[in-house]
Design a protein around this nucleic acid. Structure first.
Lengths: 112, 112
DNA sequence: ATGCATACATAGATTTTGAATGTATCTTCG
DNA sequence: CGAAGATACATTCAAAATCTATGTATGCAT
């Protein structure tokens, strides 16, 4: 089980990373996260939508409704330039810490 | 600059990882973190001591004072078995998420 | 004696999160 | 047709965790 703080720290970068690969809507993002994490990360919609709203307020993402054929209306989110910058810098931070952790726990291997 | 949430998520695992390598005291832990992160993580003592106290209350670490030669008294922290378990499971979680992030951002390379 | 690094400690204002809850549509299957 | 379950989005606010600000004190160098 992933700790609360780690969950909190990873939510935004994961959302940004997913949207960097193409626009997407809330419900689908949840499934993609579950998918890409091998089932270890299971988000609820109740936690995701507020996060998406906050990220939109911060201009990391934008949204627009799309009504198609037989489907329910969906709100699609798109990453902004600011969002891409944020993602890039988050990834750098994650790398620092991950490498610090690895360096401490197995000092012999270097790896990535 | 490392984000607040990421900072929060990494504090405990880093402390545990350091103590897994041998007992240590607060001030020295701060320097070790700075050192191992290449200067990217700079903790303040004011944020560390409360964390250490909470971790001790949760039995992840124990502490005892050591008064030596010309030095000031220092409170040395030791990792417990429970702490080692915690560290191990945190590392697993970190790996999941790091790999999910990497998988999303550069889908071609696998790596570790 | 002055300044700086070392060393530990506490309180509590502030922020943040996400669980709980609500609404509604689409699909499937008997 | 009707029921059940998956899909889809939305809001509120109680509860909890963090760490900034602040305080104390010693060792060492010059």
């Amino acid at each position: 089980m992933v700790s609360k703080t780690l969950m909190a720290a990873s939510t935004r970068p994961l959302i940004l990373a997913i949207l960097a690969g193409g626009k997407n809507y809330g419900y689908s993002i949840i499934q993609k996260v579950k998918d890409i994490s091998g089932g270890h990360l299971e988000w609820t919609d109740g936690m995701l939508y507020p996060v998406l709203q906050r990220m939109e307020m911060e201009n990391l993402i934008t949204s627009n409704w799309k009504l198609s054929d037989g489907n329910r209306p969906r709100r699609y989110y798109t990453i902004t330039d600011k969002g891409r910058d944020e993602l890039a810098s988050e990834l750098i931070s994650w790398r620092y810490i991950w490498q610090a952790l690895k360096g401490l726990t197995d000092p012999l291997k270097a790896g990535d």
